[in-house]
Design a protein around this nucleic acid. Structure first.
Lengths: 164, 164
DNA sequence: TACCTGCCCATGATATTCCAATTTAACACA
DNA sequence: TGTGTTAAATTGGAATATCATGGGCAGGTA
């Protein structure tokens, strides 16, 4: 699980240190995938093999040749870079990703449960302000509460021995 | 469960002793998460891995790439600090959290059932005065009484062996 | 030959761990 | 109820380990 926020930097060679807690969250696996977040936020999104398998399984649900499948396959699967973490914990970010995310010099890593994101610090602050506002809207809160009730139901069922 | 109120202090290195009863409430687990309370009260909120897993499980319920998920992930998951309690019971509070909560020197811990809060003492006194007033309002009392009746119903059902 | 890339080592900064001392709280006994 | 004793918890400081980052070297490629 990727939590919290960390500061980092890109050096002259385009190298970036993955924060140690994120490396731990990758389970010691040195393979990382990075792509441009398809939500238009201007961030890079990344994760390990486990996340890619989750995407692959989700996309396999969608029919071959379906437009939805094609959209996500293009942006996430085809658009991802398959990178290797070296033994000092760094990856080399391809230039086109840095340009797309508007990053150079200092950067920010943010945890997103199964994935993490890489931001230009100013861009992230703007995103955070916007998302805080969205999180407080009634419709958003309703959707969150519905998810919470679902988790409560599942946990209650599991404690009655129906599953678990 | 986190109950009651305790006084504490921040030393020159930003280290804070978690009150022993709260450490017990964390179940001996040395991982603690701290974030800025999203209610605008100016407090810090904290909890253990169990609370974070509840959040993570709830958010995992929401689809990858969904806007609702993004809003809560940004404000709750990315906004949290993933801290470790050392073997004398202390954590190091990041500076930006201290600034956000207006704390330095003496601080106050207050229990909030499944989480706890960290306050500047003066700020907490103002908050307490305000909340005492709100608790006496008819609408607040009605909502509390409704929750109480629900618990009574559930306990009655449980004692009849309908679930439990 | 020039450049790009991956690999390795060195260094400084930062965070974590360890040890010791003081203070506070809890308890037993008079 | 007061006092002495003991244990626990909090505090301060120093040693240690970890991590991020910069530079250099060798191998491969254009």
């Amino acid at each position: 699980m990727f939590y919290s926020t960390y500061e980092g930097a890109i050096d002259a060679k385009g190298r970036v240190s993955i924060p140690a807690p994120y490396r731990a969250a990758l389970g010691g696996n040195s393979r990382v995938f990075i792509w441009i977040a398809p939500d238009g936020s201007g961030a890079l999104e990344g994760g390990g093999e486990a996340l890619m398998e989750l995407y692959a399984e989700t996309l396999a649900e969608l029919p071959l040749q379906s437009p939805v499948r094609e959209a996500f396959v293009t942006s996430v699967i085809a658009g991802s870079a398959d990178l290797k973490i070296d033994d000092t914990g760094r990856i080399r970010l391809p230039d086109e990703f840095c340009e797309a995310a508007g990053i150079s010099g200092r950067i920010r890593f943010t945890g997103a449960i199964e994935s993490f994101k890489i931001w230009d610090p100013a861009r992230f602050e703007a995103h955070r302000a916007k998302q805080n506002g969205i999180a407080q809207q009634p419709a958003t809160l309703d959707a969150f509460h519905e998810a919470y009730r679902e988790v409560r139901r599942r946990r209650a069922a599991s404690s009655r021995g129906e599953a678990g």
